[in-house]
Measured scan of single mutants.
Amino acid sequence: EEERTFTNEEEARKAKKEAEKRGLRVTVTKDGTTWRVRIG
């Protein structure tokens, strides 16, 4: 499991799409101005 943080919503969405392409489970949460993308 890996967690990545982004300040840019577009980049967070891109990371989510890429992980889904690899067949991984992805959770995206917004924490104030930060987007957290949890993969795995």
Score class of each variant (00 low, 15 high):
Glu1Met: 13
Glu1Ile: 15
Glu1Tyr: 15
Glu1Asn: 08
Glu2Phe: 14
Glu2Ser: 10
Glu2Gly: 08
Glu2Arg: 10
Glu3His: 05
Glu3Ser: 06
Glu3Trp: 10
Glu3Met: 08
Glu3Tyr: 09
Arg4Gln: 12
Arg4Glu: 06
Arg4Leu: 15
Arg4Trp: 15
Arg4Ala: 07
Thr5Arg: 07
Thr5Ser: 08
Thr5Glu: 09
Thr5Phe: 13
Thr5Gln: 08
Phe6His: 01
Phe6Asp: 01
Phe6Trp: 01
Thr7Ala: 08
Thr7Ser: 09
Thr7His: 10
Thr7Pro: 08
Thr7Trp: 08
Asn8Ala: 04
Asn8Ser: 13
Glu9Thr: 02
Glu9Asn: 03
Glu9Tyr: 15
Glu10Phe: 10
Glu10Gln: 10
Glu10Tyr: 11
Glu10Gly: 08
Glu11Pro: 01
Glu11Gly: 05
Glu11His: 05
Ala12Gly: 01
Ala12His: 00
Arg13Trp: 14
Arg13Asp: 10
Arg13Met: 15
Arg13Ile: 15
Arg13Phe: 14
Lys14Ser: 10
Lys14Phe: 09
Lys14Trp: 08
Ala15Tyr: 15
Ala15Asp: 02
Ala15Trp: 15
Ala15Leu: 08
Ala15Glu: 05
Ala15Pro: 00
Ala15Ile: 06
Lys16Met: 14
Lys16Phe: 13
Lys17Ala: 14
Lys17Ser: 12
Lys17Ile: 14
Lys17His: 12
Lys17Asn: 12
Lys17Leu: 14
Glu18Trp: 10
Glu18Tyr: 05
Glu18His: 06
Ala19Glu: 02
Ala19Asp: 01
Ala19Gly: 04
Ala19Tyr: 13
Glu20Phe: 03
Glu20Met: 07
Lys21Ser: 13
Lys21Asn: 11
Lys21His: 09
Lys21Asp: 13
Arg22Ser: 07
Arg22Asn: 08
Arg22Asp: 05
Arg22His: 09
Gly23Thr: 01
Leu24Val: 05
Leu24Met: 09
Leu24Gln: 06
Leu24Trp: 06
Leu24Gly: 02
Arg25His: 14
Arg25Leu: 10
Arg25Ala: 08
Arg25Val: 11
Arg25Thr: 11
Arg25Asp: 06
Arg25Glu: 08
Arg25Tyr: 10
Arg25Phe: 11
Val26His: 00
Val26Ile: 02
Val26Thr: 03
Val26Trp: 01
Thr27Lys: 05
Thr27Asn: 05
Thr27His: 08
Thr27Ser: 09
Thr27Glu: 08
Thr27Ala: 05
Thr27Leu: 07
Thr27Ile: 10
Val28Lys: 00
Val28Asn: 00
Val28Ile: 15
Thr29Pro: 00
Thr29Asp: 04
Lys30Glu: 05
Lys30Met: 08
Asp31Ala: 06
Gly32Gln: 04
Thr33Val: 08
Thr33Gly: 14
Thr33Asp: 15
Thr33Ala: 12
Thr33Tyr: 12
Thr34His: 14
Thr34Asp: 14
Thr34Arg: 13
Trp35Gly: 12
Trp35Pro: 13
Trp35Val: 14
Trp35Gln: 11
Arg36Asn: 05
Val37Ile: 07
Val37Lys: 00
Val37Ala: 00
Arg38Ala: 10
Arg38Gln: 09
Arg38Val: 14
Arg38Pro: 01
Arg38Glu: 09
Ile39Asp: 01
Ile39Gly: 01
Ile39Ser: 03
Ile39Val: 07
Gly40Met: 14
